[in-house]
């Protein structure tokens, strides 16, 4: 019954999210014609000419008709053509998706590992110099604006030292799977991944520290210590295991959000991922492109939530009993 109810809830959420994906871009001011023809040209077109272009782009159909086409498109995998890029939305998504997964995936793994380690150690050493120094440093770095951080990385490692390329995801002119291609990809990943990981580590650290701290404050920890259990066993067996649940949730949510990419980091580094595509879609009010992007982002986040929910009972038996 629980699984049935959960499935129904997620299906309903998906439907509402899909409707929001369709209507929200259209509620925002602006339309794609400006981006396609140029604002100075559109401004001087007659109403009839503008209507003609809108008809060609399929954006002057009544909204219910457009919505119907959109739903059909989702179920048939046809998101239409990007107005600005002049190519099928699906092709654009497939082209950019691997880069976003690579970038965000590495950043997620690195930030989760570093944030977890630093967070639990910080909680373990609560109130000591190591805790205060770690918290202060990470909070300071984490509060830096990502675009500023990215620019500083470029100025240091590209412009000043000349060690790393400042833009793109691969060396243009090389092809997969040559050695040069891999080297190019690796070099170009370093700064964006570092930028993202630095920013994300802060939140992981705070969650890890807080949940570890809560675990360490529990009576069973005191009881274990009273029993004479070793500190190592208390750390790993009793405290850390119980602190894992919030970290697991955070990591799964991060997995779901992978698809959305990073708008700022991808833009600054001209990284060809979905984040940059979202910026482009929003700037040009490219409805088909935005719809395609939001649909796959929505589905991935909802799927990650769904899987997280389903796996909770396996991770923490207490939630099984609660249900």
């Amino acid at each position: 019954m629980y699984y049935l109810r959960t499935t129904f809830q997620y299906a309903l959420t998906l439907l509402i999210a899909l409707a929001a994906n369709f209507f929200l871009p259209r509620l925002a001011p602006g339309d794609p014609i400006n981006a396609l023809l140029g604002a100075d040209v559109v401004e001087n077109m007659s109403a009839e000419q503008i209507a003609q272009v809108a008809m060609e782009l399929g954006i002057n159909d009544p909204l219910p008709i457009q919505f119907w086409h959109y739903l059909i498109g989702i179920f048939t995998g046809d998101f239409g053509n990007s107005i600005k890029l002049g190519m099928p939305v699906w092709d654009a998504l497939i082209q950019k998706l691997p880069w976003t997964l690579l970038l965000m995936g590495f950043a997620l793994v690195i930030s989760t590992l570093i944030g977890t380690v630093l967070g639990v150690l910080s909680a373990w050493k609560r109130g000591e110099f190591a805790d205060i120094a770690t918290m202060g440093t990470v909070l300071f770095i984490g509060s830096l604006p990502p675009f500023w951080l990215a620019m500083m990385l470029i100025i240091l490692f590209s412009t000043t030292l000349g060690w790393l390329p400042s833009f793109g995801a691969y060396q243009i002119g090389t092809s997969f799977p040559s050695w040069d291609w891999f080297v190019g990809v690796g070099k170009r990943m370093l700064m964006p991944v570092a930028g993202l990981a630095i920013v994300q580590t802060t939140s992981v650290l705070l969650i890890a520290r807080s949940s570890m701290q809560m675990a360490l404050d529990q009576d069973y920890i005191m009881f274990a210590r009273a029993k004479g259990v070793s500190e190592g066993a208390i750390f790993f067996k009793h405290a850390f295991r119980n602190a894992l649940l919030p970290l697991y949730t955070h990591t799964m949510m991060g997995l779901g959000a992978l698809i959305g990419g990073s708008l700022i980091i991808e833009t600054v580094f001209s990284y060809p991922g979905l984040g940059g595509l979202i910026v482009q879609g929003v700037n040009s009010r490219d409805y088909p492109l935005l719809q395609g992007l939001f649909v796959i982002t929505t589905i991935s986040i909802i799927a990650a939530n769904f899987i997280t929910d389903l796996l909770y009972p396996l991770i923490d038996p207490r939630t099984r009993r609660a249900r």
């Binding site: 590209s158 412009t159 000349g162 833009f167 833009t267």
Partner: peptide, 16 residues
Amino acid sequence: VMIKDPQTIFAALKSG
């Protein structure tokens, strides 16, 4: 090559 960010495009020029 597309480099959208104004700072990055001139950084890329500066770095060669």
